[in-house]
Design a protein around this nucleic acid. Structure first.
Lengths: 231, 231
DNA sequence: CGTGCGCGTCATATTAGTGTAACAATATTG
DNA sequence: CAATATTGTTACACTAATATGACGCGCACG
């Protein structure tokens, strides 16, 4: 589990992106850059960064619009966003936060401030459901220790099954198509057969054993669902 | 699926277009072809494809320019675009994304990859309608979890019955002919006996049980109706 | 440079869902 | 009430969708 966080910087001015990137890299972050909304979107689905630094003013789709767009799509809905804006536009702050930004920084800012805020947001958003253990009917998944147990007894899972189960446990009672599962669990830029999902479902069920395999439910003609309720 | 997607292939080399078209048609897409920007533009306005496959290198207006042009026109601004380019031109990738392409494939590519990418792009650009649960007299259908319950107790439905019920619950108090139901629930381009509808109505009623089967009402000489009010 | 493990794909088995036809029941018409 | 039109029911062959087991490949680790 790589603990280096990926940050996507979206700004139309290359020098600014560069400056920020340097600051962040010195602080141990990995940086991606995009100069407009479309490019940013492509990179997000592609590389799944851990957070987005978004310039307020951009030609084409503005930062706010883009943030809103990200919030709407489930795939990116919980992506942390920090808005960057020029000074003296306090009223924008309102709109920025409304649009779903997690924080707001006005230029000019010091690298130290940026890193500090970023850390804060990351600390605040990352543990949200991501680092907390989840458990259902005696089945527990602990993201921190990367372990799954049934009534305390450990369950062996391959990496993919683990991610799959983690996704399921954090998105219960929802039917997902194989395609959606591929997007969410495998990642945006892998191209595998949809049937592969079946196989991993199978492996997951087998690993869960009779006691818990009812949780992974088939929704015929649609996909799969994880739920503690039968049928 | 219900609606077959139309894909416009723009490339100046006919054999390549043909190859791509064959691959896509096998995967169940409908294909349009154009060999230059003008022709492509005409087809776009004319047939409104769901996405465009655009060759990077073309005589006349190049792929990038054309993409830009599409992005500028409001009518075509959100048309998904996948760029095709020759290998070993990584820096083009940047420009491709800049110009607004949603994805980028370098030749040579396998048909499988092409189809997979296409699917992915289509999946993430097709906005999913926000689906709220509907409920009538204790009967609830939740599109998200893909579940139907009567007073909380789950009801088993096959895919077709599910769609049928979903259609009914979102179009209540209105009589539909069997033909209309076939169009709406089965999809426009399938040929099945109209009496098949009767059978599925029967199955639906049976699944709903005595408690709720009154909701599905026969309109003699016309078809069926879903309503909480008794006729 | 083997070796083992996890992953993706295939081929095959299994099961669930569909459409049709045939017959029963019920309404409609005159 | 008979004759006819329409809908309800059921059984069944057929198809589509999912489950399962096996295989080979690539990669990390020794």
């Amino acid at each position: 589990m790589s603990s280096t966080k990926k940050v996507l910087i979206v700004d139309d001015e290359a020098p600014i992106r560069e400056m920020i990137a340097v600051a962040l890299e010195m602080a141990g972050y990995e940086c991606l850059e995009a100069e407009n909304a479309n490019q940013a979107h492509a990179l997000i689905v592609d590389s799944k960064p851990d957070m987005v630094l978004l310039d307020w003013m951009m030609p084409g789709t503005s930062g706010v619009d883009f943030a809103r767009r990200l919030r709407k799509d489930e795939l990116t809905a919980d992506m942390p966003i920090i808005m960057l804006t020029a000074k003296g536009e306090e009223e924008n702050k309102i709109k920025g936060l409304e649009s779903g930004a997690d924080d707001f920084i006005t230029k000019p800012f010091s690298p130290r401030e940026l890193v500090a805020r970023l850390k804060a947001v990351l600390r605040r958003t990352t543990p949200k459901g991501v680092e907390e253990p989840v458990s259902v009917d005696g089945l527990t998944l602990d993201p921190i220790s990367h372990r799954v147990t049934a009534e305390g007894a450990p369950i062996e899972l391959g990496p993919t099954e683990f991610r799959l189960l983690q996704f399921f446990m954090t998105h219960q009672d929802r039917a997902y198509s194989r395609g959606q599962l591929l997007d969410m669990v495998w990642g945006g830029n892998v191209y595998v057969e949809e049937r592969t999902v079946d196989v991993h479902i199978r492996r997951l069920r087998k690993a869960l054993g009779e006691r818990h395999d009812y949780l992974v439910q088939t929704v015929r003609g649609t996909g799969y669902r994880f739920s503690a309720n039968v049928a």
